[in-house]
Design a protein around this nucleic acid. Structure first.
Lengths: 350, 350
DNA sequence: GACAGAAATTAAATCGATTTAATTGAGGCG
DNA sequence: CGCCTCAATTAAATCGATTTAATTTCTGTC
C-alpha cells in the first residue's frame, strides 16, 4: 500500500503539502496540486484512515447498535442510516444485538432488564469507544423508553424507534398516524368502528388510541368501550381473538382499526372464518405496512411508517451532535402516510 | 479518554508492559498483571483501535458490501455475518449499494453493467482499502457470477449468494434443494408434476431444474416439456401466468413445483381464480421460505435457504483468508431444508 | 560468592497521517 | 537596494498503541 510519503516523493514535495492538498483546498499552489494528484493516481494512494483518525481524533464513523438486524423494522431503518452516512462521508460500523424472535414475541420487556442484555450492550459500547466512533445510533425494534438500561455515555447518541430520557430520538408520530386511519374509515362512510389495541402498556398503543379517538370525536363519532378489544400483545393470534370478540357484539362494527398489520391479518382471517367477506362485510384497517404481508389478500389498507426516514433523521441527528452542532429538536417525530389498498370499503355492501 | 500511558503510570510500569499484559498472556508477572488490570479498571481504559491497527497493520474488521440491505435475502445474511464476526472478535463495517426495488425487478442484470454500479462498487472498495479492512464480503441479492464487474483486489474477498470466477463463495445447493422438493411431492403421492421455472438463464433455475428432474427420473417419473412453464422472471405475475398455462393443459398436473415462493403465491391465486382449491385440487410447492409470505394462506410448503448460515460461512471464509489460512474449499454450498406446511397434500382428494 | 541463564521489564523506534512553527521565496514599496 | 509582507512549502512533533533490543532482576549451581 502506498503511503503519503510515496506520493510526496513522487511529486517532489513534502508529506505536509500532500496532506494540505488533500484536506485544505486552496492552501497549495495549483500546479503543485496537479502534480500531487497525478502522483496519487499513479501509485493508487488511498489515505490510511487509522493514521488520520489517530492524529485528528475523529474517525468519521458512526456506530449502529441494532436490536435485531434480521427483521422489521431494522433493515429499513438501517438503509436510511446507511444512506445518510454515505452522503455525509461517514462510514458505518454495525453491531447486532441479535434479540431472537422468541424473545421478541414472549419476554422482550423482561429481556431488556437481564444481565445478558446489559452485558451485550456494554460490549457494544466498549467497541464503539474503542473505535473512537463519532456517534452511536441505537435502533430498536419497538418504540419505548430505554432510560433504565442505557448507561450514560461520553459519545453522542441518537435513538431510532426507541428513546431514552431526554436524549435525541426519532420516532413515528403515532397520534397523527392513527388520525389518518380514522379519517380514512370515516371518509369511507363508517360510523361503527372497532379498535384492536396493541399491548396496553406500550406508548404507541396509547398514542394511537388517543389520536384515533380524537379524530372520531371531532366528527361526532363515539368509541364505545365494548368496541375496544385486544391489549395483550401485537401478534396474529391476538388480532384473531380480538376480532372474534368484536364480531360477537350484538351491534357489531362495520370496520375495525387494528394497531398492527399482523393483528389485522388475524382479524381478517377471524372474519373470514365467521363467514364474513373483507372488505364487503367488514373493513379492516392495519398499521405498519409490514412487508411480511405484502402478498396478503385482500391487500391491507394501512399506515406506512417512514422507517427509512427515521434512519436518515437519526443519522443526521447523530452526525450533527458529533460535529458539535446542537440540533434544534432532540425529539423528532416523523409523519406516517396512508396507503389505500383493498381491505377498506364502504359499509353495508354485503 | 484514558490511554495506555495513564494505565502504565498508575500501575507503576511502562506502557510496553501494559501492552504485553493485554496481548501476550504469560509474559507479565502475575502480580504486575493484577496491578495493571486494576489500573485499567480504575481509569476505564479501552485500547484505541486506531493506534493499534496503525502499528500492527491489522484492523480486525470486515467490510461488508450489500446490494440491498433492506430486503430479502440481505438482512438474514447480514445477521449471520455479524454473528460470526462478533464471535471472532472482528467488527463489521457496512456499505449498502442500495439497489432499488425498481432496478431489482426490472433491469437488474443491465444495472450491474452500468457506469453507476461500477462507480459505487469502486467507492466501496476504496473505503475498504482506506480502512485497512482485513477482508471484504460481497453479499448479493441473487446468485450469479460477478466476474465481469468485480475488479481484482489486494484484500481477500468472499462472496455470499453470488460468486466470481474462482474466488471463494458461499451459496445454497440448488440441486439438492430441488431434489428435496421433488421427493416431498413424490412421497405425497404425486406423479403428474408441473414446474414453474425462474428466469431461464439464471444458474439457480438450471440447477434446480436438473435436481428436480433427476429426482423424478430416479423414481421413474418423467417431466414432459409441456409441464415446464415460466422462465421469464421470478415475480408474482410470472408465477400466475405460468400456472394458468399449466392448468389449461388437457391432462393437467396434480402438483406444481415453483422455483420461488413469490411465484408460488401467484400460482396459488391463479388456481383459486380457476376455481381450484389449494392443496386439495392442486398442490403447490414453493422455494425460498420468503418471509414476505409468512402469513400467506395456505401456508406454503417450501424449501428454506439457510441464509444465516451463508453469512456465517462467508464470514468464516473471509476471516480465514485474511489470517492467511487457506480454506479447504473455496466454493461452499450449504444445504437447504424442507419446510412441510399446508400447500402440499395427496392428490385426488378434490 | 561469582556467574550463567532465564525471566521480567523498559527505552526507544515505529506505523502514516495531521498540524504547528519555521523557513524560503516572491513581490511591492519607499 | 533594502525591508516588509504574504504565499507556499517544509521540518519536526504528535496521536496511542506495539515491538524489538537492551537492560535489570532473579534463580540456581558450582
Amino acid at each position: 500500500m502506498a503511503t503519503i510519503y510515496d506520493v510526496a516523493r513522487l511529486a517532489g514535495v513534502s508529506p505536509g503539502t500532500v496532506s494540505n492538498a488533500l484536506n485544505h483546498a486552496g492552501k497549495v499552489a495549483p500546479e503543485t496540486e496537479k502534480r500531487i494528484l497525478e502522483a496519487i493516481e499513479q501509485v493508487k494512494y488511498v489515505p490510511n484512515r487509522m493514521a488520520r483518525s489517530l492524529k485528528t481524533n475523529r474517525s468519521r464513523s458512526i456506530f449502529v447498535i441494532a436490536e435485531d438486524v434480521r427483521a422489521f423494522p431494522a433493515p429499513r431503518i438501517l438503509d436510511g442510516i446507511s444512506e445518510y452516512c454515505h452522503e455525509a462521508g461517514y462510514d458505518l460500523t454495525l453491531f447486532n444485538l441479535r434479540i431472537s424472535p422468541e424473545i421478541r414475541n414472549f419476554d422482550y420487556g423482561l429481556y431488556l432488564g437481564t444481565q445478558r442484555f446489559r452485558q451485550d450492550l456494554a460490549a457494544a459500547l466498549a467497541q464503539a469507544k474503542s473505535l473512537h466512533t463519532c456517534a452511536v445510533i441505537y435502533a430498536g425494534i419497538y418504540p419505548r423508553d430505554m432510560g433504565n438500561v442505557f448507561p450514560p455515555l461520553d459519545i453522542p447518541v441518537a435513538f431510532c424507534y426507541t428513546y431514552s430520557h431526554g436524549l435525541p430520538s426519532v420516532n413515528c408520530n403515532d397520534y397523527t398516524g392513527a388520525r389518518l386511519a380514522a379519517e380514512q374509515l370515516l371518509k369511507t362512510g363508517h360510523r361503527k368502528i372497532g379498535v384492536i389495541l396493541g399491548k396496553t402498556d406500550a406508548l404507541p398503543t396509547r398514542r394511537r388510541l388517543s389520536g384515533f379517538a380524537d379524530a372520531l370525536g371531532e366528527r361526532g363519532v363515539t368509541l364505545p368501550p365494548e368496541y375496544v378489544a385486544g391489549g395483550e400483545g401485537w401478534s396474529y393470534e391476538d388480532g384473531r381473538k380480538a376480532c372474534r370478540r368484536l364480531l360477537c357484539l350484538p351491534d357489531r362494527p362495520t370496520a375495525i382499526f387494528s394497531m398492527s398489520d399482523v393483528m389485522a391479518a388475524g382479524a381478517v382471517h377471524a372474519a373470514q372464518d365467521a363467514g364474513l367477506c373483507v372488505p364487503d362485510d367488514l373493513s379492516v384497517h392495519g398499521y405498519d405496512n409490514y412487508e411480511g404481508l405484502s402478498f396478503f389478500r385482500p391487500a391491507l389498507t394501512t399506515i406506512e411508517m417512514p422507517l427509512g426516514e427515521i434512519g436518515r433523521r437519526g443519522a443526521q441527528l447523530a452526525i450533527s451532535l458529533s460535529e458539535g452542532r446542537a440540533p434544534e429538536k432532540t425529539d423528532v417525530l416523523v409523519e406516517c402516510r396512508l396507503l389505500e389498498r383493498a381491505s377498506v370499503a364502504p359499509p353495508g355492501k354485503g
